[in-house]
């Protein structure tokens, strides 16, 4: 695959420049700005990822219902085309804004940074980013989050961690969602945990059903603990 130097030499010399330019440099630079904004305002930032339909928005609604009297929570939702998810979340009475990515399959730090002025961060304890639904592209883009949480629905099959290793490698917590459907599905929670831990031995795992309110209290306790840590830092 190297350039044919002999023909090039006839027209002049080929000059080489060795570089090490990181293609995500611009994204990571903005992610750092977001990080320091969150630090200044003591706002916990959580990036929620999953495939489409794994239950992110439903979990945001449920979490808002449970936590809105205890802390101030807000959500930012990335979606390819529609405003629907943000509306669903606003119905619970918390602030939620949609970032329509116009076909881009992930959120980039720049998009998050652009809408940050819409939030009164000094009054917000917990800000969620519901990322665009897919486990590939969002894995590469740091949004300046404190924690990355990935949902894995029981309806998806238990081989996801090895199919999308980068996402599970970079996640702090895996939520096995729609656990109410477990009795009806050939889904092994043990197998999915084993695979996830082979990829990332530090990943924490919880099992939840937003629909049947199972495991949601444990999830909320996890969040409250992280919020507390952020505020004491």
């Amino acid at each position: 695959m190297s350039v044919d130097k002999s023909t090039k030499a006839a027209r002049g010399t080929v000059q080489c420049e060795n570089t090490n330019i990181n293609l995500l440099k611009a994204n990571d630079y903005v992610a750092d700005i977001i990080k320091s904004e969150m630090k200044k305002n003591k706002t916990l930032l959580i990036n929620v990822t999953s495939s489409a339909g794994s239950g992110k928005t439903t979990l945001m609604q449920k979490t808002a219902e449970k936590l809105k009297d205890k802390i101030t929570m807000a959500v930012m939702v990335g979606d390819l085309e529609t405003e629907r998810d943000a509306e669903r979340i606003r119905e619970t009475g918390i602030q939620a804004l949609q970032i329509v990515t116009g076909g881009i399959c992930h959120l980039e730090a720049q998009m998050v940074h652009q809408v940050l002025p819409e939030y009164q961060l000094e009054n917000i304890d917990l800000l969620f980013i519901e990322n665009v639904g897919n486990l590939v592209c969002p894995a590469s883009f740091d949004l300046g989050e404190d924690y990355r949480v990935t949902l894995m629905a029981t309806t998806e099959g238990d081989d996801k961690p090895k199919k999308y290793p980068r996402m599970f490698l970079t996640s702090d917590l895996m939520l096995v969602s729609k656990s109410d459907l477990l009795p009806y599905l050939p889904f092994s929670v043990d197998a999915v945990i084993k695979d996830a831990k082979e990829v990332n031995h530090q990943i924490e795992v919880m099992q939840i059903s937003a629909l049947k309110d199972e495991g949601i209290d444990a999830w909320c306790d996890w969040l409250l603990e992280k919020v507390k840590q952020k505020q004491n830092n």
Partner: peptide, 17 residues
């Protein structure tokens, strides 16, 4: 998880005429 290679997206060389 101590990656030393495999996540990079780098422009590592450029050639000019």
């Amino acid at each position: 998880k101590n990656l030393i290679q495999g996540e990079e997206m780098l422009i590592h060389k450029i050639e000019f005429n």
